[in-house]
């Protein structure tokens, strides 16, 4: 399990918790709007070594079928993964061309 994006809905008073505790892993907004550049995986070159997965501060890289895959909803475009990938399988591209 990981925190996941909930369906956007307006809160009614009944939904507002009476104390300061609330469900864990409850996300209502994405972080994709923070990016000016985005990492793009060259799946032909990626060898699935998982170094980018280990070092991503946001945990948005997973390895699927032996290749790195990015959750662009929550990637902030920091570029750490591109520097970590020794074989250059991650390029940073402008978000708006």
């Amino acid at each position: 399990m990981k925190p996941y994006l909930r369906e956007q809905k307006a809160f009614s008073f009944d939904d507002v918790p009476e104390n300061t505790s609330f469900e864990a892993g409850y996300l209502v907004t994405v972080n994709s709007g923070w990016r000016s550049i985005r990492p793009v995986i060259d799946t032909g070159r990626c060898v699935g070594c998982e170094q980018c997965y280990l070092y991503c501060p946001d945990g948005v890289i997973s390895i699927q079928n032996g290749k790195a895959v990015i959750d662009y909803d929550f990637c902030k475009g920091c570029g750490i993964c591109a520097k970590i990938c020794k074989i250059g399988a991650i390029g940073m591209e402008a978000e708006h061309k």
């Binding site: 990981k2 892993g25 996300l27 907004t29 699935g48 070092y55 501060p57 945990g59 948005v60 997973s62």
Partner: peptide, 28 residues
Amino acid sequence: MANPTAEKLSRDEYFYGHKACAGCGGSL
């Protein structure tokens, strides 16, 4: 390509969607 460190970890994420600055070392 197996990564022995990655194999030790849960595949789940427990700190996700947070609002730390891009590239924040503390969040890592």
